[in-house]
Amino acid sequence: MSNDTTPALHVSSVSHSYGARQALEGVSLSVGQGAFCGLLGLNGAGKTTLFSLITRLFDNTSGHVRVMGHDVRRAPKLALQNLGVVFQNRTLDPDLSVLQNMTYHAALHGIPRRQARERAVAELERAGLADRVGEAVRSLSGGQMRRVEIARALLHQPKLLLLDEPTVGLDVGARRDIISHVRALVGQGGLSVLWATHLMEEINTDDAVVVLHQGKVIETGTSQEIADRHEVGDLKEAFDAMTGLAKGKAA
């Protein structure tokens, strides 16, 4: 089903509405294997709805979502096996230890206990948290919790990692730390990342970017390309121009 040219994530013409409210309209985007892609949008742009559809919390009523070539609706089992997710809200169990949280996740992927332990320790080492394995999650800092969540999402070795505003609520240092950690993971090869954010400074000039606004994709390309197309200095200015924020500010 999948080969090296199959995109890790392919979303085509996806629409979704909550009753009368149209949350997404004809959204299409693609994330190549081993690529980092920023999904940029203001709060309420539809990022979380899109994530809900990709993770199959609910289904898309039109269009297709494919993870490593597997349709999320038709082959959810294969699609979800290839998917790791870090949700916007904290989803670790604060009463349990770091390792207990990790092995619970491993069980949700049917990983045998011993192997689960090994994988958990390996991923926590990669996240620089090997010494916190036995500690209660409650005792970790916000940034460390995020790192544990990333380690947990990678435990079953997915091909695609989704992160929904992962730096919300973190201080500048922790935010920088999380970004460079995820970029390093992409650099190690094989992993593709879709990083949703409303913070322009988290996007590099050569990053692929998809701009989502009021439920529609209004721009795609690298950050630099988008800025050039709008004849402005950087992505932020281009974004302000596209979304009408600049006008708002002027007024």
Binding site: Q81, A107, H109, G110, I111, P112, Q157, K159
Partner: peptide
């Protein structure tokens, strides 16, 4: 795909 995950009968049980 799903390098370490096991989704057969034993996986269900785990």
């Amino acid at each position: 795909t799903g390098a370490v995950g096991q989704y057969g009968a034993a996986g269900y049980l785990r």
